[in-house]
């Protein structure tokens, strides 16, 4: 699998993403600087966490209009896979690749903690190594993760199985307290209808080996590897 990680001024999870892709997919990702919209053909483009362009105006707003992102949108529309994590989710939503918006957390606090997620759809190319309904533990670190979408958009997401991860308790229950940032329908991650763009607030790339405190993020990258085998 060939992959690229987009690096913005203010990205801070780009190296974690690089290590996760290298260790699990077995090939070195391209690190693409934000001003460079002419990069090699890849199977997956990862938009990492951080505070791209300082999150001025709105989280992800400026980054979503950058030259490299126009290229990412063009490729995504051709079927190239895109993974947006945390700030990357905000950026792909701002760029219109996914519906809805990420607003200020309900309790107005920056959240930096491990949360439990329930895998709602294990049939996507990003989640096939998880089991449907499986509860995983992954860290979040964000101020603007409160997912909002219109009633029509929410209904479409639910009807099409586009909700991929929800915040839950350790037992997989959906509660107000477990929904750490106040997201509508406890949404932590969604996928577009064609299934090639996933956005999620939690950080699977931060939990890929025991020394990091767990391995619950590994399956996401393994799933992608299944879609794009090394030989391809």
């Amino acid at each position: 699998m060939k992959s690229a990680v987009i690096v913005y001024p203010g990205s801070n999870c780009d190296r974690d993403m690089q290590v996760a892709l290298r260790k699990i997919t077995g090939s070195e990702p391209l690190m693409v600087w934000h001003g460079d919209s002419d990069f090699d053909k890849v199977d997956l483009i990862a938009i990492p966490g951080g505070f791209a362009y300082g999150d001025y105006l709105r989280s992800g707003a400026i980054a979503a209009r950058s030259p490299v992102m126009r290229e990412v949108v063009r490729r995504a529309n051709q079927g190239v896979f895109v993974l947006g994590v945390c700030n990357g989710f905000q950026i792909v939503a701002e760029a219109g690749l996914l519906p809805g918006a990420l607003m200020r957390n309900r309790d107005l606090k920056f959240l930096c903690k491990d949360v439990h997620l329930r895998v709602e759809n294990a049939k996507t190319a990003f989640t096939s190594h998880y089991a449907g309904g499986q509860v995983i533990r992954v860290p979040v670190a964000h101020f603007d993760g409160n997912y909002f979408a219109s009633d029509d958009e929410l209904k479409a997401l639910e009807d099409n199985g586009q909700v991929v991860f929800r915040y839950c308790t350790g037992d997989g229950e959906l509660t107000g307290e477990a929904n750490v940032n106040g997201s509508m329908h406890s949404i932590a991650g969604i996928i577009n209808k064609p299934g090639n763009v996933l956005g999620m607030m939690p950080h699977p790339e931060r939990l890929i080996e025991d020394i990091l405190g767990g391995r619950d993020g590994r399956a996401l990258f393994k799933s992608l590897l299944k879609t794009f085998p090394l030989a391809a």
């Binding site: 105006l57 709105r58 707003a61 607003m103 219109s150």
Partner: peptide, 9 residues
Amino acid sequence: KKLLANTVI
């Protein structure tokens, strides 16, 4: 429409 407002919200 393109930048200053996010018309979703």
